[in-house]
Amino acid sequence: MLSKILPEALWAIIRDKLNETKLYEIRARRDSPIVIDYAGKGYFLSVEGISTNEKEAIIADEKLINSIVFKASNNSVYAVNEQLKQGFITAYGGIRIGICGELVIENGQIITIRNFSSINIRIPHEVKNCSLPALKFLTSDKGDVLNTLVISPPGAGKTTFLRDLIENIGIRSESKKHNLLVLDERYEIAASVQGRNMLSVGKFSDVISGATKEFGFREGIRAMRPDIIFCDELALEDDIKAVSLASSSGVVVVSTVHAKDLTELKKKSVFKNILEEGVFKRFIVLSRVNGPGTYDAIYDENFSLLYLR
């Protein structure tokens, strides 16, 4: 996967000196040392692989950053400009590249980003069946999936967990013919590239990529008649409204949110009403204690503890 977006010299170091499965992030800032997240720890990328000595680090320059962005866009920046305007590109294999640079604004609208100054390459890792032990807590006595909110700090694997959950629910509902709809607003869940899902969300899911949650919920319900909708990162008031609307239409919603724990979630003003209304029946709190996708606790709609690690 990385071989398609990295310059040959950089890829050769990763291929020959590192274990790609332990590599989570590569951060390249213009005229600064390249930093990597390797097996959960931060290192400099050096010719010899990893190093803690800054002097040995490989320095990222303008050419390197431009080359990575260009390759990640399949040599066609214009084709990913809508993503670029939001500060990221999804490349082959679901690799996600966060991009900083100069925003070009015309009449108050972002046209594009130019003069890239830094990039963050995030390499997705599938943790097969990481959601399976939690699944029994997320279903009713009849076996129906309940409205669920996955709570997680950044980097604790909420998307990994959600992706696996979609796949497992899909497998379980095969005989029941449930329709699963994935709203992949930021191309993180299924990482669709030209209509092909780069990351598995099972055989029984429909994916809408790039649309806002408001659009995805409204049009997705009309077009695909889903039984369960999955989406990532609820944050805005419009997202919450869309979830409430879907839920009142009888559609089950499984989503994620950035928060350290339930207490922190309750402090978020946009979630006040939806929590009071008891729309979500289950809350799963994730952490990185045993690697991404570890779940610490599960709560019901009354915030009573169902499971504690």
């Binding site: 431009n66 260009f70 866009s73 040599n75 066609s76 920046v77 214009y78 400009n81 670029l84 046209i111 594009t112 130019r114």
Partner: peptide, 9 residues
């Protein structure tokens, strides 16, 4: 070719 947005291309 391919290095900018649609308008510039």
């Amino acid at each position: 070719l391919g290095k900018t947005d649609v308008l510039n291309q």
